[in-house]
Design a binder for these strands. Structure first.
Length: 492
RNA sequence: GGCGACGUAGCCAAGUGGUAAGGCAGGGGUCUGCAAAACCCUUAUUCGCCGGUUCGAAUCCGGCCGUCGCCUCCA
């Protein structure tokens, strides 16, 4: 079976064939670290996290590069706005690099909580100024760029293929309503490679054109190819970055070196809130920290990071996802159901009898693993992968309820699905589902109450039995009388 | 105005030519002392609307309506 993925460049699904067999280089546009991450970041980075996890699961050696943008990303159009980092630094009265450090840490804290594995390399734009200058010089040498008053611009008319990714035409861009005339530009669609720094601008570097700072698109051109080669396999990012960001990344590298750029382009869709796009500038952005705590007017409660992850993966990465409390709550319940079966399986393993794996168990395990791989091979269809896990769960519950205890090896074969597919690929079933408050002490006390209640039940003293159960429920401890004994868990 | 996407049950969401996955919610049942959990059955004769192609369409084509995105910083 081969992995098929949707390539934005060709606008269709293609069989994935890495440039070098067995190895995959993937670059994903990372955050500009001037504020806390929000649900939109979660959608993008969870999506690509699963893509990387699945490529590894499929046997590829993957190098995953995701940049940290800490300079050059402007707040306004036409290369005229302030630098986002700089503006935030002024607001918080911090050094720009303090802002960068603060929000980089915040970003990784949130991603760790979401069980997003760290990229292999997280290069900073500010750490690659020299490489960016080199690329700009190469473009100047080939007449793909020109200098004006200490700034350097890319000439879109010099690169015939400009528009290949976004489907735009240079002539139409020139007629765009909102592109303001910048007198330094030879063509309205030309974009800045290097900007001259005004005297008060603190983030600036020496360059052949004087003191200045790099444009936004160059960093990604440079850092992707530096670590992955030219061309490389996959470039990912949000849909909204196709133009001008991704279009310009291609132009810069291909114009300078004629090696092409990324073979496959993958774009995730957007998050909406009540049907409207969520964006920092729209004021309806919910930060991940708020989402986890529930501290936001749009939230009726906080949501566990894993619930958020499950929610994101329950729609396809190329589909938009609309935020609502109802949808999050449904996800919360669904995930809990998945987890409770996993926990039942894991709790039984230590005391399960020895024995072979029955044929029916083997069949259930094999068939679901196969289906899971089939749907993931088809452009990383996580909603169907999750559906497969639920189907599997149902089959497992039936086996668990069958009466004859499953052997240890059978339970382990079942758990292997949860570990490799549920956690290894999707990242939604943590190893420790049993982390109970209080540890052995609480467990011992609850077991004591359970045994007292058992005696009451044996005596048909239902009043006492129900009192124990009800009062424990009020304390947040739920008792379940199963055919093979009473178990307890936390929850309402 | 240009480019693009989407519209599937009460809600969320798969499915891109062969007769509607999965989750949440609802109804009925089994199990239970009663519960809980789990399991079984059930809830769209139908996929925004109108035409067309086809033996056959949610899936392809045309038109219309609606929603959203990009074109300007945003994952």
């Amino acid at each position: 079976m081969a992995i098929q993925l949707y390539n934005s460049l060709s606008r269709k699904k293609e069989v994935f064939e890495p440039i070098e067999p067995g190895f995959v280089g993937i670059y994903v546009c990372g955050p500009t670290v001037y504020g806390h991450s929000h649900l939109g970041h979660a959608k993008s980075y969870i999506s690509f996290d699963v893509i990387v996890r699945y490529l590894r699961f499929s046997g590829y050696k993957v190098r995953y590069v995701q940049n940290i943008t800490d300079v050059g990303h402007l707040t306004d159009d036409a290369d005229e706005g302030e630098d986002k980092i700089l503006r935030q630094a002024q607001r918080e009265r911090l050094e720009p690099m303090e802002v960068v450090e603060r929000y980089t840490r915040s970003y990784f804290d949130d991603m760790d909580a979401l069980n997003v594995l760290r990229p292999d390399i997280s290069p900073h734009a500010s750490g690659h100024i020299l490489e960016q200058i080199e690329l700009i010089e190469a473009l100047l040498a080939k007449n793909h760029a020109y200098e004006k008053n200490g700034s350097v611009y890319f000439s879109v008319r010099s690169y015939q293929k400009y528009g290949q990714l976004s489907g735009r035409k240079i002539e139409e861009l020139a007629e765009g309503v909102r592109i303001e005339a910048n007198p330094e530009k030879e063509h309205p669609a030309d974009f800045a490679l290097w900007k001259k720094a005004e005297p008060e601008h603190i983030m600036k570097w020496h360059s052949p054109w004087g003191e200045g700072y790099p444009g936004w698109h160059v960093e990604c051109s440079v850092m992707s190819t530096k670590y992955l080669g030219e061309p490389f396999d996959i470039h990912g990012g949000g849909l909204e970055n196709i133009f001008p960001h991704h279009e310009s990344e291609i132009a810069q590298c291909d114009a300078a070196h004629n090696h092409g750029f990324a073979k496959y382009w993958m774009h995730n869709n957007m998050v909406t809130v009540n049907g409207m796009k969520m964006g920092k500038s729209l004021g309806n952005a919910i930060s991940l920290k708020q989402l986890f705590t529930g501290d936001h007017p749009l939230l009726t409660q906080g949501y566990d990071p894993l619930t958020v992850r499950f929610f994101v993966l329950s729609s396809h990465y190329r589909s938009p996802i609309d935020f609502s409390n109802e949808a999050l709550q449904a996800a919360e319940k669904g995930l809990k159901r998945l987890h409770s079966t996993v926990k039942l399986v894991r709790d039984r393993i230590p005391t399960a009898p020895a024995g072979d794996i029955p044929a029916e168990v083997q069949t259930v395990v094999d068939s679901h693993r196969k289906t899971f791989i089939q749907v993931m091979d088809d452009d990383f269809n996580t909603p169907q992968a999750i559906a497969t896990l639920f189907d599997f769960n149902k089959a497992v519950n039936t086996l668990l309820n069958a009466g004859t205890p499953l052997s240890k090896s059978a339970l382990e074969a079942i758990d292997d699905i949860y570990r490799t597919l549920g956690e290894g690929v999707l990242g939604i079933i943590p190893d420790e589902l049993t982390a109970e408050i209080g540890g052995d002490l609480v467990d011992g006390l609850v077991q004591l109450l359970i045994s007292l209640r058992q005696q009451a039940r044996a005596n048909k003293d239902w009043a006492t039995a129900d009192t124990i159960r009800n009062q424990l429920t009020e304390l947040g401890i739920v008792l379940e009388d199963r055919p093979d004994g009473t178990v307890w868990k936390l929850g309402k």
